[in-house]
Amino acid sequence: MYGHSMGAIVGYLICKKIETLNIKKPLQLIVSGVKAPVYPRKEKIAHLSDSDFWNKILNFGGMPEDFDNCP
Rank of each mutant, 00 (worst) to 15 (best):
M1E: 01
M1K: 06
Y2R: 10
H4Y: 15
S5Y: 08
S5T: 04
S5W: 07
M6R: 13
M6V: 15
M6K: 13
G7N: 01
A8Y: 01
A8W: 01
I9K: 12
I9F: 12
I9A: 14
I9E: 05
I9C: 12
V10M: 11
V10N: 07
G11A: 12
L13W: 09
L13C: 09
I14L: 15
C15D: 06
C15A: 15
K16T: 04
K16W: 01
I18C: 09
T20C: 09
T20W: 01
T20D: 11
T20I: 04
N22I: 08
N22W: 03
N22P: 03
I23F: 11
K24R: 12
K24A: 13
K25M: 15
K25I: 02
K25L: 14
K25N: 13
P26C: 12
P26H: 10
L27D: 15
L27S: 13
Q28R: 12
Q28D: 06
L29Y: 02
S32I: 00
G33R: 00
G33C: 00
G33E: 00
G33H: 01
V34H: 02
V34D: 03
K35M: 12
K35V: 10
K35S: 10
A36I: 12
P37Y: 04
P37I: 06
V38F: 13
Y39G: 10
P40R: 09
P40S: 06
R41Y: 05
R41H: 03
R41V: 03
K42E: 11
K42H: 05
E43K: 11
E43F: 07
E43Y: 05
I45M: 01
I45R: 03
A46M: 14
A46W: 06
S49A: 14
D50M: 12
S51A: 11
D52L: 12
F53D: 01
F53K: 07
F53T: 02
W54N: 09
N55R: 11
K56D: 07
K56R: 11
K56T: 06
I57F: 04
I57G: 00
I57M: 14
I57S: 03
L58A: 03
N59Y: 02
N59S: 14
G61T: 07
G61P: 01
G62A: 04
G62I: 08
G62L: 07
G62K: 05
G62E: 02
E65V: 14
E65H: 03
E65Y: 02
E65K: 10
D66A: 13
D66V: 12
F67K: 10
F67R: 08
F67Y: 13
D68V: 08
N69D: 09
N69W: 02
P71G: 04
